[in-house]
Amino acid sequence: MKVLNNKRGQALLELAVFGALILILFGYLLSYMQRLNDQQYVQMDTFRNALQMANYGAGDNKGSAIHFTKLENKRNVDLSGYYRKGAPQTNSASASVYWGVPESGTQVSTQSYYKINEDLSPDLSEGESVDDVASVSSTSFEESVIKQETPQSIKNIRVSSLRDTITTTLVDKNDNALWTVKQNLYRDANGDYKYSKTASEAPVVRSRTWETPF
């Protein structure tokens, strides 16, 4: 019973429990901020693209009515601790712009485009409209940690290999595919994770070495 009456032990336990909760709360706040930040970029980018498309139509310099939707797959900071794996996140936004200043004697054309990551769909305004966006993701991740001890130093090497393929299909109300795009994960010049149909299926390999010399 002495153990149960140990007030210091109780204080430690409470600190451990509430400390963990506070850390989770902080982590959630930061994740929320990251999502909000990316979402705002996508919304702004979508409207600017729609505005530009509406002005030029399909490259024929005619005013148009444009419906433009953008979907962006991201890999945000992952709190689970896997090395550079990232947590998948999808941001999307839509914008409709009616520019409507066609050349004299011509009709305003109405067009509908989807941009999935870096790939732009063809004009989908003809026929059935898009009823749903179906997305299938295939992810494989491997990680290894190597510790090398020599008389001169201790070296920790962490290597991860990530392969991610997302297949996005735009379907109409009858479940017919209107457009399908298969995109692979890659890293751009800034080192950011991106998805593109032109990227190879090779995994993205990341590694880092920590060395402590004696």
Binding site: D38, Q52, N55, Y56, G57, N190, G191
Partner: peptide
Amino acid sequence: QYNATRVSAGYGHDNYTEKVGWGAKPEQ
């Protein structure tokens, strides 16, 4: 950047796939 690219999004590009002045993206 968003405000600054409002006018350029409606001017002088040949086709709609060309990037507008809005090249902003989340910084690292």
